[in-house]
Structure formats: C-alpha cells, structure tokens
Simulated assay, not measured.
Amino acid sequence: MKLNEQQISQYHEKGFLMIENYLSEEEVGILIEQLPNTIVKDSPRIILEDNGSVRSVFAPHFTNDTYARLSRLNRLVMPAEQLINNKIYIHQYKINTKKGLKGEWWEWHQDFPYWHIDDGISKPDMVSVMIYLQDTNSSNGALMLIPETHKLGVVKFAEKEALAAAAEQNDNDYRSSLNADIKFTVDHELIRELSVANGIITTAGEKGSVLFFHGNIFHASNINLTPFDRDAILITYNSIDNLPQNKQNPRPDFLSGRDYSPIEDLVTTI
C-alpha cells in the first residue's frame, strides 16, 4: 500500500499520520501470540521497569520470524520509503509494553537526539511506525504529541540529573535512554509554550491502528491506569544515505542496527 498525496502532506505538515484498521484482527492476534517468544531471559535486549515488569523488548526480529516478517510488510515499508523519499533499513525495532497498573510513563522528548548524539546520524531522514496491539487511549497510556514541533529541529533539553550524569561520564551508556528517567527530555518551558500554541494530541486508536511519526516531534505517554496490558510495536526506518557515524563507541546493534542493506523481499502479510 502506498500513501496518497494528502496523507504525505499531512505527515510533513503535522509530523505524524494515524491510519486506523491498518492490520487485521488476525494479524494482531498473531503478533500478540508471538510476543512472549520475543522475551529472552537475562538478555540485555529486555529492559525492565523499576518494579520488575518488562518495559521494552528490543530487536524482536533477531530471534522471532513473525516480527522479522512484520518489518518487511509492504504496508509499512512502502509508506516509510515515501515519507523518507529513499530506500530504507531498520535502525531500531522494539516492543514497548505498559503492564496493567504497573506500566510507567515516558517523559516529553524527541527521538532524534538519541540517534544524532549517541549514534552519529546526521539528518532526521527517519520515520517511526507504531503498531497498536490493543485498543489504546488516555487511560492506558496512549502516545501524546505536540503537532508541528518536528519543524524545530533538536531543541533545548531539560536540565536533569540523568543528562548531567551522562555529560559528566562523557560516555555512551545506552541504559540512560531506556528507563523512566531518560536523559534527553524537552525543556519544560518550551513544552508549555508549544502546548499553548499547537495543542496536545492524544493518539487514541483501536488495535491494528498504525501511527507514522517524525523523529523530532515532541511526544510522551502516561502510566497505564487500567488492569490490562498495553503493548505497541515501534519500528524506526532510516534512509540508506543517512548511516550512523559513531564508530568509536557505538551502541549495541539491538539499539542501533548494523544491517544497512535496503529492505527488499517485501511480504503482504505476516
């Protein structure tokens, strides 16, 4: 499936594009069924909350064929190529899970600073695709966005201990970008200003919905207040002409993909 001109224009203007009922109920069921098979005990690819519940599963395509096929689904790859205007590869792939009554928040941030500062990617010629595995709304931690903030580039960071510690250590500790106290968060006054100017969108959607969003858009999500898990798959595609340049201290390959081959052999279903 390819996007139409109106959808492409909306993405570039607003910084995101939501499409409902993009995956079938059967496809979502397969992904949910296979999700436990992506979790490998004691693997560094599994990030836990402070309460011990799973927060993120990185690189599920490394060990699971279903999730590997999903990353080559024509309905994801072709629109991503249109939005980036080039052939693409997988820079990062993860499952974020908010456990019922346990799932923590994600502070207001942009994704591109991590890819730019930690991975050495020069341009935000990237797009993230979020796939909803359950009905998602404000009560179970739906993603919130501030439209058009992707046009600002990388903005001022909030002053916080996680950022100061990372600067003092002068290292590339990947763990500081994965827990609830992430290091690169948006300055609070800037969030207030842009929220007043542009508003905040809660990207509620039914299971099977897909959200395409820009790496520089301000986004956050709240805790999961329901007793039911809320899972979402996020695949970040990057242009094959925009490769990471941090060769001295690269993050692990499950955070910064090393296979730069353009995605081929597209599939029509998982």
Rank of each mutant, 00 (worst) to 15 (best):
N51S: 15
R55I: 03
S138Q: 05
V127K: 09
D231W: 08
M78K: 15
E264G: 02
V40M: 05
L225V: 02
Y89P: 08
F212M: 09
E104C: 14
I84G: 06
T202Y: 01
F218C: 06
I217Y: 01
G208H: 11
D241H: 14
H188V: 13
L76Q: 00
N85F: 12
A167P: 03
P79S: 04
P36Q: 12
V129H: 08
L76P: 00
W115Q: 11
H150L: 08
S53L: 14
D135H: 08
N249E: 14
A197E: 14
N37S: 15
F254Q: 00
N172W: 07
Y260D: 05
E13K: 07
D65A: 13
K98P: 05
Y260W: 14
K207E: 14
V210M: 02
P60A: 09
F112V: 02
I46M: 11
G120I: 04
V186I: 14
A80F: 03
M1Y: 07
D171E: 15
V40Q: 10
V196H: 11
A167R: 08
I8H: 10
L35Y: 04
Y93N: 03
S53F: 11
M78C: 14
K14Y: 05
V129Q: 03
I32V: 10
L225A: 06
S209F: 00
I121H: 12
P252S: 02
N4P: 06
G120L: 09
A158D: 14
A142Q: 01
D229H: 07
N170D: 14
N198V: 04
L23E: 00
K87R: 03
V154K: 04
W106D: 02
R251W: 09
K98A: 10
A204E: 01
L143W: 00
T66P: 04
S261W: 05
D187V: 14
K94L: 12
G29Q: 13
Q10E: 09
P113G: 09
Q34A: 13
T202K: 00
Q6M: 15
R175W: 13
T185E: 07
P250R: 09
L35K: 05
T269P: 00
S53Q: 13
A180P: 00
T185Y: 09
G141H: 12
I263R: 02
Q7V: 06
W108L: 09
R75P: 04
S138P: 02
S177M: 14
Y11I: 06
K94Y: 07
E161R: 05
D118R: 13
F157Q: 15
F184T: 06
P244S: 14
F112L: 04
K102F: 12
K207L: 09
P60H: 05
H91W: 04
A167V: 15
E33S: 12
E25D: 13
P44V: 15
N137A: 10
P252D: 10
N246I: 08
T226K: 02
Y114R: 09
L145Q: 03
V57E: 00
G100S: 06
N170I: 08
P252C: 11
A165K: 09
H109V: 02
Q7R: 07
I223T: 15
W106P: 00
T202H: 03
D241R: 07
N222M: 13
